[in-house]
């Protein structure tokens, strides 16, 4: 993955708006969080291949970045994004990696199921 390029990601967000898309949204501290450090509280969630449509969306911040997607009846929001996959021209793959390179959050949109 590459470090996020704000303009290019914004462009990709624009290109996918108004369409029915498959969403993968995820956040995780990792299953080993409390095994490695008992003060850590392990938490995670993900939802995969749920259909969504947004009419308005943008990426914000100076990095790590935030993304908000406005749907007819609600929002999709992610904070902590650092990387994206530039070569994926049909999909938007965004991820946030921590200082050790481990994935913390992911926000992905695609016309086809993941």
């Amino acid at each position: 993955m590459q470090l996020i390029n704000l303009e290019k990601v914004q462009h990709r967000i624009e290109s996918l708006k108004g369409e029915e898309l498959y969403l993968h949204l995820e956040m995780t501290t990792g299953a080993y969080a409390s095994h490695l450090d008992s003060t850590k509280h392990p938490a995670a969630n993900f939802i995969t291949n749920t259909k969504i449509k947004y009419d308005h969306g943008s990426i914000a911040g100076i990095g790590p970045y935030r993304v908000g997607l406005k749907m007819a009846e609600g929002w999709i929001y992610t904070e902590g994004l650092t990387h994206w996959e530039e070569e994926e021209s049909e999909r938007l793959l965004l991820a946030g990696h921590d200082g050790q390179g481990k994935l913390v959050v992911a926000l992905q949109l695609s016309r086809e199921p993941f």
Partner: peptide
């Protein structure tokens, strides 16, 4: 496939 390590620097992604 849900692993958090993608390599350093990340050469893998969720997909």
């Amino acid at each position: 496939e849900m692993g958090r390590n993608m390599g350093i620097p990340p050469f893998a992604n969720r997909v």
